[in-house]
């Protein structure tokens, strides 16, 4: 019973919280600057040929992308643990876990299959050997 009366009093605060939840000019500008920096770095790394080590370069690009995705989520989509009583966050975590499983498992399984199956098929092997020098001679 006391909950009902207090919820009536809470309405004005609630309204302010809504506005805060929608973001502020400073929030959007901070997000924009961070996103711009996190976009420019990978472009510079790839187009300026800064890192010669390819696997390392790919890891750096992916790490920057993940950081930028979180910048977008926090500053543009305003996801936090309070919005919608935490249900937004719950749905997001659930999605993130499934997306990681789908992506990670697909890459893992298919990589292993490629590695283990390739020598089995002489046709394919011949094809890929014949193809590789033609496709990118300068880098290798």
């Amino acid at each position: 019973m006391s909950q009902l009366s207090s919820s009536g009093h809470a309405m004005p605060d609630n309204h302010d919280a809504m506005h805060e939840h929608q973001g502020s000019l400073r929030g959007y500008l901070t997000g924009f600057v961070l996103a711009a920096i996190l976009t420019v770095i990978p472009f510079w790394l790839v187009m300026g040929h800064v890192i010669a080590n390819k696997p390392l370069l790919i890891l750096v690009i992916l790490a920057l992308a993940i950081v930028q995705i979180f910048v977008h989520i926090v500053y543009f989509l305003h996801l936090d643990t309070r919005s919608e009583a935490g249900w937004n966050m719950m749905a997001f975590i659930f999605t993130a876990v499934l997306v990681i499983i789908v992506l990670g498992a697909s890459i893992w399984v298919m990589y292993n299959e490629n590695v283990n199956m390739m020598p089995m098929s002489p046709q394919y092997q011949q094809h890929s050997i014949g193809h590789q020098p033609a496709s990118n001679p300068p880098t290798r």
Partner: peptide
């Protein structure tokens, strides 16, 4: 947000 994944993974990693 999805475009961040596209330009990073599809294009920048795709080129490499």
């Amino acid at each position: 947000l999805v475009w961040v994944g596209v330009f990073s993974y599809v294009y920048l990693v795709g080129v490499l």
